[in-house]
Design a protein around this nucleic acid. Structure first.
Lengths: 139, 139
DNA sequence: AATCATAATGAGAAGGCTTCGCATTTCTAT
DNA sequence: ATAGAAATGCGAAGCCTTCTCATTATGATT
């Protein structure tokens, strides 16, 4: 019963929010735009408005349930927070997204913020490249 | 004579392009939105259209004269390419931008791309935090 | 279970940033 | 100087996202 999760997050357990949360949890794709969520829900027969999807995803972000990414291309991409922190590497050809985590980089970032006197609140690291599959195709 | 720089970059030396390039070179602010460039030029008495500023900055980016950043907040921010590669740390309170370069992080990024089989083309690293001045104010 | 105050939704309008389309102007090579 | 090609400026249009507001759903209370 996910309605508990929503209430813990300080959100009323409304139908649209439950639908979106369930969808994010069940989807095998981990990174999606608001529009992709919206269309997928419509296609699965749910009634929902695009504005609601945006609102709910923003609330989820504030509540810490979801992370919003600013990959190149303009649209925001959302990801359900599961497991631990990680960064992303993206294929510039096919859009594939892989995740990684490097303790050394994390440490260096904190060291840099400290050295410059910043109280670090967040960071974003995206590596762009051509994924193995797209390299094969190109040959 | 910057018109040479433009021609080297494969761009016709037109007045708007020269104005924008000169402005970027003379400005003490290194990171600016298209609109900021546009308004600054208007205020200094130049005639120019906003669409032209966008077009020219995009051309400069393609030509390698300028880098476009996607800081949080929606607008693209442009920076004249001078000196060497560096990453950015931004203050979430006042918008201040500082630059840094960490050889270890650079190496780790390449190592990660290699390990995952990606041919790395680019990367972007932004650290967000509260700058020293804003920390003082908060107390 | 019915009621009520409040908060959330849906649909479309509106907003911000960026690009497009096209008539006019500016470049550059002749 | 001149012609052909490319660039400009303006407004319109396009995206993505947020806002507005009438309607509807939620959850606490009776």
């Amino acid at each position: 019963m996910e309605s508990q999760d929503l209430k813990k997050a300080g959100l009323k357990a409304t139908l649209p929010r439950l639908k979106i949360l369930n969808f994010l949890e069940d989807s095998e794709v981990r990174h999606m735009t608001a529009e992709e969520v919206y269309k997928a829900l419509l296609e699965s027969g749910e009634e929902i408005g695009l504005a609601t999807v945006y609102r709910v995803l923003t609330q989820f972000e504030t509540a810490g349930l979801v992370t919003r990414h600013h990959f190149e291309g303009g649209q925001s991409v959302f990801e359900l927070n599961e497991g631990t922190h990680h960064d992303h590497i993206l294929c510039v050809k096919c859009g594939r997204v892989d995740e990684f985590m490097d303790e050394t980089i994390e440490e260096r970032q904190h060291a840099i913020a400290d050295k410059l006197g910043y109280a670090m609140t967040d960071h974003s690291l995206y590596i762009y490249g051509i994924c193995p599959e797209c390299q094969k195709k190109a040959k």
